[in-house]
């Protein structure tokens, strides 16, 4: 179990926690939270450089791309075309060929647009991207995306930023049973036990942002998440006991004093 590695698109990682970098007070807090989480993969978004603001700081000055795998995402894209364009730009920065593909279908729920996600994934896989799609916890969609050549599938546990935890562990179990690529729970985690639950189900990794950045003490929560993911993974590998309705005594029944 010491050699338990998370393999993703031909690379191996020790940490099974992927963290976002949004919603922090400043880049310093971002860096401290990422360090406390133990994450080796961090997500970033692609945005226009602010031309008028001089002496601007860059997130990558705080998160060294030599040390972390920078995972650009297509957050904020509502069409396949926008997501493809964003991914191409992200790759040209030179940080990696990986992309977290996110095509949003609805502003209120931030649920993914499944047909548009599939369409964008098809194009990006063909262009050599290592695609990690954020998707609904629908087993058939996950299967299709994996068959298409995505390096992972990332079903949501609950809506982005909702903190509702794992709403449908049964769907996740089906996705995991059928999976031929790593399954990463992306979005919806609220607290440490949610992350542990995802790992106990057998998920390969968990991706989160708000659960850490939105906590009263983000750095402490990052540490909690690190431990939860490790504990959940270890419990999964160790194999939990069966659930039984009645008690089973833990102490020997022989040798009782009479």
């Amino acid at each position: 179990m010491h050699n338990d590695k998370f393999e993703l698109g031909g690379r191996a990682f020790r940490s099974r926690l992927i963290v976002g970098t949004g919603k922090y007070r400043d880049f310093n807090e971002t860096r401290q939270a990422v360090e406390a989480s133990g994450a080796e993969i961090v997500t970033v978004a692609v945005r226009r450089v602010n031309i008028t603001e001089r002496n601007r700081e860059n997130l990558l000055d705080y998160l060294d791309p030599q040390h972390y795998m920078i995972l650009p995402n297509t957050a904020g894209c509502y069409t396949a075309e926008e997501a493809i364009r964003t991914a191409r730009l992200a790759r040209e920065t030179g940080v990696s060929d990986f992309v977290k593909l996110e095509v949003i279908g609805d502003q209120q729920t931030l649920f993914p647009d499944i047909p548009a996600t599939i369409e964008a994934a098809r194009v990006l896989v063909k262009e050599g991207f290592k695609v990690m799609p954020y998707i609904t916890d629908d087993p058939v969609t996950c299967l299709r995306l994996a068959e298409m050549g995505c390096v992972a599938v990332m079903p949501l546990a609950a809506p982005i930023g909702s903190g509702l935890g794992i709403r449908n562990p049964y769907n996740l179990r089906i996705i995991l049973e059928q999976a031929r690529v790593p399954v990463v729970v992306d979005a919806g985690v609220g607290t440490a036990s949610d992350a542990a639950q995802a790992m106990e189900l057998g998920c390969d990794a968990v991706l989160m942002n708000t659960a850490i950045a939105g906590a009263r003490e983000p750095i402490a929560m990052a540490h909690a998440m690190r431990m939860a993911v490790e504990a959940g993974r270890l419990a999964y590998l160790a194999g939990r006991i069966e659930r039984k309705l009645y008690a089973t005594a833990s102490s020997p029944l022989s040798g009782l004093i009479e």
Partner: peptide, 10 residues
């Protein structure tokens, strides 16, 4: 012309 960089996100 578009010039982009990376910013924090989820």
């Amino acid at each position: 012309v578009e010039v982009i960089n990376f910013v924090g996100c989820g």
